[in-house]
Computed example of a mutant assay.
Amino acid sequence: MTVERLLPTPEAYDLLDLTRELTTRELAGRVDDFEARGEFPREVLRTLGRSGLLGLPYPEADGGSAQSYEVYLQVLEILASTWLGIAEAVSVHTLSCFPVALYGSERQRKALPEMLGGELLGAYCLSEPHGGSDAAGLTTRAVSDGEDWVVTGTKAWITHGGQADFYNIFCRTGEDGPKGISCLLAAADTPGLLPQATERLMGLRSTAPAQIVLDGARIPHDRLVGGEGQGFAIAMKALDAGRLGIAACAVGLAQAATDYATGYAKEREQFGRPIGRFQGVGFMLADMATQVSAARALLLAAARLKDAGRPFSIEAAKAKLFATDAAMRVTTDAVQILGGYGYVADHPVERWFREAKVLQIVEGTNQIQRLVISRSLTG
C-alpha cells in the first residue's frame, strides 16, 4: 500500500523518491543473493554514500545533508522495506559518525566529509562478550604508554567488524563505573586491532557482526574523542538516536510484510474466493496495518522532539520497544497468512520473520527499554 506521508519540505519528498529509486535499482535484485552468500555489500553502501544517504542528519559544512531526523528515519524505513541489512548498516554508520561529529577535535573532524560520504565506513564498539546491557561494566582497558593508549580486551556484536575503516572503541581509562570510560577513534589498520570471523546469524547474514579483539592495540593519544572519562556519556547520547534508527528499520520491515501478505491474500483463493475476504484473515491484516501505523506515529513523534532540541530519550525507548515488538508480531502473522508458502524461501516473509527477531535485541534489548521507561515513571 502507498504510505501517506506529511514531510516538512518539498526537498524531503524528492529525497524519498530518490531513495525508492535506489532501492529498486540497487537493492531489490541483490538482497537474496547477498543474504544467501553472507557477503557484505560494501559497494552498495558506497553507492548510497555517493548519493548522499550516509550522512543525512549531519550539517552540510561537515559533508552531511542537513536533513531532520524526521526525514532521515523515513529514508531508513524505505531502505528496510527492501533490505534490512542495508538499512541497519546505514543506521550503524550514522551512529558511528556521532562521536566525532559532536565531540571530535579539529584534527579528528577533518575526516568527517569522507565519513559522512561513506568512503570511510564506521563501527561502534561498545558491547562485550560478557556485557551488553550493562554498558557501564565494560572491561576493555586502555593504559597510557608514551604517546599512545595501549588497549586490551574484546568487543562483541560489532556491525561492520572486519569491514569498517574506523572503529569507536569504548574502553576503561580510569575508575570502575561509567565515569572511567573513554572513547578512542581507531583506524582499521591499528596494530593489535584484530577482527574475528563473522557470527553465524539467523538473519541479517549479509551484515553479520564480528568480535574485535584488542591485543595491546596502540592508539595515539590524539585519537581520544572528547575528554577522558566522557565516553559513557557519548555512548548513551548516541544510542538515544540509534534506537530511533532501529525503530525505523522495524517499521520498514513490518510495512513490507503487511504489503506482501495483503497482496497474497487478495490473490490466493480457497473455497471459491480470495482468503483476504474471510474475516479471520482480514482481521489479521487490519491489525497488522494498525500496528505499523501506530509504530510509525510513535517513531516520528520522538524524531520531532529530537529535531526541536527537546528531551527525547524516553520517547525513543518507547518507539524502539513498540516498533520492534510490532515487527515481530506482524512478520509472524505474515508467515501465517501465507501458510506453508510462508515457511519457504521462495517468499520473502520467512526472511523478514527471522530478521525481525534481532531488532528486539540490538541497540538495547526491549527489556532494557522497559526498564528505562519504567524508571522514568517511578523515579
Score class of each variant (00 low, 15 high):
residue 6 L to E: 15
residue 37 R to A: 13
residue 38 G to H: 02
residue 39 E to P: 00
residue 44 V to N: 00
residue 45 L to A: 14
residue 52 G to F: 07
residue 57 P to S: 08
residue 69 Y to I: 02
residue 73 L to Y: 01
residue 75 V to K: 09
residue 76 L to R: 04
residue 92 V to G: 10
residue 96 S to Y: 10
residue 101 A to N: 12
residue 119 E to Y: 07
residue 121 L to G: 11
residue 127 S to L: 09
residue 127 S to F: 04
residue 128 E to L: 06
residue 128 E to W: 10
residue 148 D to I: 04
residue 158 I to F: 03
residue 160 H to T: 01
residue 167 Y to W: 04
residue 169 I to W: 05
residue 170 F to S: 06
residue 174 G to K: 09
residue 178 P to E: 15
residue 182 S to V: 07
residue 191 P to M: 11
residue 197 A to W: 11
residue 203 G to K: 01
residue 206 S to F: 02
residue 207 T to R: 07
residue 208 A to M: 03
residue 208 A to N: 11
residue 209 P to G: 00
residue 209 P to E: 00
residue 217 A to H: 08
residue 217 A to C: 02
residue 219 I to N: 10
residue 224 L to K: 01
residue 227 G to I: 07
residue 228 E to I: 09
residue 234 I to K: 00
residue 236 M to R: 14
residue 237 K to Q: 12
residue 241 A to S: 12
residue 244 L to H: 05
residue 253 L to V: 13
residue 260 Y to Q: 08
residue 264 Y to W: 14
residue 269 E to W: 14
residue 270 Q to E: 13
residue 271 F to Y: 14
residue 272 G to R: 09
residue 272 G to T: 06
residue 284 M to N: 10
residue 289 A to W: 08
residue 290 T to I: 00
residue 305 L to Q: 13
residue 306 K to N: 06
residue 313 S to W: 02
residue 318 K to I: 05
residue 327 A to H: 00
residue 328 M to Q: 13
residue 334 A to L: 00
residue 334 A to N: 04
residue 340 G to L: 05
residue 342 G to N: 01
residue 342 G to D: 02
residue 349 V to S: 02
residue 355 E to W: 02
residue 359 L to P: 07
residue 366 N to F: 07
residue 379 G to W: 12
